Simulated assay, not measured.
Amino acid sequence: MKQPHLRIGTTSYILADDILPNVRYLAPLVDDIELVLFESKGMSNLPSKQVIEELAALAGEHNLSYTVHFPLDIQPGSADPVLRAGCVSSILSIIGLTRSLNPFGYVLHLTPELYGNVPSLEVERWHDCCAETLQSLLERTDVCSEMFCIETLSYPFCYVQDLVERFDLSVTLDIGHVWLMGYDSSEVMDSLLDRTRICHLHGVKDGTDHLGLDQGDAGNIEYFLKRLRLQGEQDGVERVLTLEVFSEAQFHASLSLLQESHAMMN
């Protein structure tokens, strides 16, 4: 279902199984797979070198790309320099592990210390610590800065947009998070679409996100898709659109809706 300027993808957690069985299942169905990685005490799903080799082979066979989602529990804005250093080390380790996959982009959370419309009780300190983490990361990697895509989370993106611009980063526009928080999605798209490299799309209903698109607001979804396609037509930039859902039923319902929308636009 290739669309001009859009690589349609989903997550590596559609089947209740490890990454490799998911990629084998999804490779014929999508253009991109988001590798959702985690690494915490006693638990890790980081693929072995052998699995990475198999992922690379599947990508070659199916013209598949990967987006790499860094772990969620890193704290780039922490006041503790040890935690910030650990964040950079974790990111660098994953970059090294996945380098042979030639990722389309890396999804990075500038994780808030509070959930909601402010990221921290000490916003200026948190912001400055995020800046230090980003600078340290970029000084220690040869990956192009535009490959790092800062995700829209619960707080308004204006808290970190200056960092994206200062370090010449890209954006992961999770429109579902925008809808969930009740922010003006049109204003967000006006502000961020040109810097967006990766989009996350999922249904939002009754305060719950990451639902299938069939459970979301059809008008909101259609408007977002229209704006995204228009942006691609205007600038010719290829982007990834990830259906960020986590079950077979949600994935197939979402893909079906996306196919219907594409058919209506042509």
Rank of each mutant, 00 (worst) to 15 (best):
F251S: 09
N220T: 01
I175V: 15
N220R: 13
M147E: 03
L225G: 11
K205T: 03
E244M: 12
R166E: 06
D168P: 00
L201W: 06
R195P: 00
A249R: 09
P156A: 05
Q215P: 00
E139S: 08
L138W: 11
V188Q: 12
L138E: 11
H202S: 11
Q231D: 12
V160L: 01
T152W: 01
C149E: 09
L193P: 05
R140W: 05
P156V: 01
G219N: 13
D162P: 06
S256F: 15
S145K: 08
Q161L: 06
K226Y: 14
L173R: 00
E233W: 14
S170H: 02
D194V: 09
V204G: 00
Y223R: 13
F251I: 11
S185K: 12
E222T: 14
E244P: 07
R140H: 11
S256T: 13
D174C: 08
W179V: 15
K205P: 02
W126L: 02
C144N: 13
L138A: 11
T196F: 03
L169M: 06
L163K: 10
E244G: 10
D217M: 02
D184C: 06
F224H: 05
V160E: 01
L241H: 13
M189L: 13
N220V: 00
L243E: 08
Q231N: 13
C158T: 11
R239I: 04
H200M: 05
D235C: 15
L243S: 11
R195V: 03
G176P: 03
I150R: 06
D128S: 14
S136V: 00
N220A: 03
L230M: 14
D168T: 10
G182T: 09
Y183M: 11
L201F: 08
S154N: 10
C130R: 05
D217T: 05
A131F: 03
S256R: 15
V178G: 00
L173V: 00
R197N: 08
L137N: 02
L193C: 04
L225Q: 12
L173P: 00
L211Q: 10
H210D: 08
D184V: 03
W126N: 06
I175D: 01
L134M: 12
L225V: 08
Q161I: 09
L169A: 01
V240A: 15
A131I: 00
T141G: 08
E146P: 00
D206L: 05
P156H: 10
D209Q: 04
L173I: 01
L255G: 06
C130I: 00
V237K: 15
C149Q: 10
Q234V: 02
E238T: 15
D174L: 11
C149I: 10
